[in-house]
Amino acid sequence: MELEQIAMNSKSFVFNARYAAITLLKDRNYDSNIISQVEKEYESFIKTEQKNTEELKAQEERLIKRILQIPIKGTRKYSLENGNELQVKRFNEDIFQVRIEDHYRGGLAPVMICKIKNNSTYLTFPFLYLKAILVYGIGGTALTIILAVLGYIENDKFIFSLPLIVTIGFQLFLMPFIYFIILHFFRKRLRKK
Rank of each mutant, 00 (worst) to 15 (best):
E2G: 13
E2F: 14
E4R: 08
I6T: 08
A7C: 10
M8E: 10
S10W: 03
K11A: 12
S12A: 15
F13R: 05
V14Y: 10
V14D: 10
N16C: 08
N16D: 09
A17G: 09
I22G: 08
T23L: 12
L24K: 15
D27H: 11
D27T: 06
R28N: 10
N33Q: 10
I34F: 07
Q37Y: 01
V38H: 13
E39M: 09
E41T: 08
S44F: 03
S44R: 13
S44M: 11
E49H: 09
E49R: 13
N52P: 06
T53G: 07
E54Q: 11
Q59A: 14
Q59S: 14
E60R: 14
E60W: 14
E60Y: 15
E61T: 05
E61N: 04
R76G: 08
R76D: 15
L80S: 12
G83Y: 01
V88E: 07
V88N: 09
E93L: 00
I95P: 01
F96I: 02
H103M: 04
H103T: 10
Y104A: 15
R105C: 06
G106C: 07
A109Y: 00
M112D: 07
K115G: 01
I116P: 03
I116H: 04
S120H: 13
P126C: 09
Y129S: 13
K131D: 03
G137C: 01
G137I: 00
G137S: 01
T141I: 00
L147G: 06
D156G: 13
F158W: 14
L162Q: 00
L162M: 08
L164R: 09
L164V: 06
I165T: 00
T167F: 02
I168L: 02
F173W: 00
L174T: 04
F177S: 08
I178V: 15
I181L: 13
I181C: 01
I182W: 00
L183F: 11
K188Y: 12
K188H: 07
L190P: 05
R191S: 14
